[in-house]
């Protein structure tokens, strides 16, 4: 279970340029006398420049990631000792679906059937969710007469 962000004393927000305003908003919302909220804006999340910054954070701090590529940054953070529960991802991106046939991840607008961008299989997203891939598993659709 995730703790409320309000319970942390130190929060680091990393954002890409696109999500800068949203991140600033978040910073204003959280910042107060007892809480230090640092905002770092970089050109693109997951470009490998944040490792030093992440490892310098005080113990017990929370991490908020805004933007595309948050997943790679999250994995770096976990490898540096962050607990997965202390990492929050803010993104406008819609649902992600993991193709069970070719492993390609497609971003979706709705939870309905779709065609995998990579292998062209018709897929149906399921409730099975991976917090590692931040994606729902999608199964191929069979029509009964399909032989």
């Amino acid at each position: 279970m995730k703790k409320a962000l309000k319970t942390y004393r130190h929060v680091l927000i990393i954002s890409d340029h696109v999500h800068r305003e949203r991140a600033k908003c978040k910073q204003r919302e959280l910042q107060n006398r007892d809480r230090f909220v640092q905002l770092k804006v970089i050109s693109q999340l997951g470009d490998g420049t944040v490792e030093a910054l992440l490892s310098e954070q005080p113990i017990g701090s929370a991490l908020i990631l805004c933007g595309e590529g948050a997943l790679e940054t999250e994995r770096v953070a976990v490898s540096l000792g962050y607990a997965r529960n202390d990492i929050y991802i803010e993104t406008q991106q819609q649902m992600r679906a993991f193709c069970s046939q070719c492993h390609h991840i497609t971003s979706l607008v709705t939870h309905e059937r779709f065609v995998c961008e990579n292998c062209r299989n018709q897929l149906e997203p399921s409730e099975h969710y991976s917090s590692y891939h931040r994606a729902h598993l999608a199964y191929p659709v069979f029509i009964e007469s399909d032989d």
Binding site: S100, Q101, N121, P140, F142
Partner: peptide, 13 residues
């Protein structure tokens, strides 16, 4: 699961 579309349809047979 990756080859489900090959072996899964046998379930209908």
């Amino acid at each position: 699961l990756e080859t489900y579309s090959d072996w899964g349809k046998l379930r209908y047979h």
